[in-house]
């Protein structure tokens, strides 16, 4: 019997238990070479003093981690703080805002396709292009926004030029640009909920709020979890639009952690420090993700 079992592994057909892994092999190979190994390598780099060129990497233990938290410019902590500010603005906006957009578009009877395309379209534009367009719109002296504000008698604004408004403006631009993805996921989630449930609830006298609270929300839970995890990760990795819209200014008030990491690695040539920052960011994201899995009680089945 045992012999028979072992022989299974040498079968050249679908009976072989290794059969499914054959299909995974191409992806796994690439994944290991281009993602898994570099990730592990970055952990090693984070413990070395390495400037890309020049002297060979020197082992420094955990002192890179110590340095990024204690160096006098405090830019890592500062950019972490800015990133949290972005996340505080962006995550609820993306998670809730795009849900309401999806519910609204799901409910409209006419022009549904038009609305769907409108909200999704910005997503396909390159981040540099959208950022440059918004720079023009927001420009304090020549921008479109101030032109229209002037027409209705509002004083000119320089939204990207002041600490008080710059980050929130970036959040708004990011939402405009990125709403398409969560919007689409919600929309398909909504369409998966059988109409019969709503019909039954209506007969029992439920109003729109009841339907939303007791049918839509619970049945969308996996989608909500997915979107909020993705949005938190995305928020902590925000970079492109910030870098182009403000370059981290004014006076570093919008410098985000990935930008700081990028500059540390590729402008300051401090690969070890940059890798250490990446691992700190990774740990933060893992903690958040685990918390979210708890909050949304992932894996618990819900049936009606």
């Amino acid at each position: 019997m045992a012999r028979n079992n072992r022989r299974k592994y040498f079968l050249l057909n679908e009976e072989n238990p290794l059969y499914p892994y054959l299909y995974l092999l191409p992806y796994l190979t690439l994944f290991i070479i281009f993602i898994a190994l570099p990730i592990l390598e970055s952990m090693r780099i984070s413990m070395y003093d390495w400037s890309l060129i020049g002297p060979p990497p020197r082992y420094v233990g955990l002192s890179n981690y110590e340095y990024i938290f204690t160096e006098p410019t405090e830019l890592f902590l500062h950019s972490l703080k800015n990133t949290v500010q972005y996340a505080v603005g962006a995550v609820p906006l993306f998670v809730v805002g795009s849900l309401f957009l999806a519910i609204a578009v799901d409910a409209v009877k006419r022009w549904k396709g038009f609305f769907q395309i409108s909200f999704v379209m910005p997503m396909v534009i390159n981040v540099a292009a959208i950022s440059i367009i918004w720079i023009w719109i927001f420009d304090p002296t020549t921008g479109l926004l101030n032109y229209y504000a002037g027409l209705i008698g509002l004083p000119p604004q320089n939204l990207l030029g002041h600490e008080e408004t710059a980050m929130w403006t970036i959040v708004a631009v990011s939402f405009w640009w990125g709403v398409g993805f969560p919007f689409l996921v919600y929309l398909s989630g909504l369409q998966d909920i059988p109409q019969t449930m709503y019909d039954a609830a209506r007969i029992d006298g439920a109003n729109a709020w009841h339907c939303f609270k007791d049918i839509t929300l619970p049945l969308l839970r996996p989608t909500l979890l997915f979107i909020s995890v993705m949005q938190i990760i995305g928020a902590f990795q925000v970079f492109g639009q910030v870098y182009i819209l403000t370059g981290g200014g004014p006076y570093d008030s919008t410098r985000v952690v990935v930008q700081h990491m990028y500059l540390t690695g590729f402008q300051y040539f401090e690969m070890g420090l940059a890798a250490a920052m990446a691992w700190v960011l990774f740990c933060i994201l893992i903690v958040f993700t685990l918390i979210q899995f708890r909050v949304f009680r992932f894996g618990e089945r819900l049936e009606y």
């Binding site: 720079i135 023009w136 420009d139 304090p140 002296t141 020549t142 000119p156 370059g247 200014g249 004014p250």
Partner: peptide, 18 residues
């Protein structure tokens, strides 16, 4: 000097606003 800082100040000069 304009007190509002911009990442693209050139246009204001080209258009005669400065």
């Amino acid at each position: 000097m304009s007190p509002e800082l911009s990442v693209n100040p050139f246009l204001a000069y080209y258009q005669g606003q400065a």
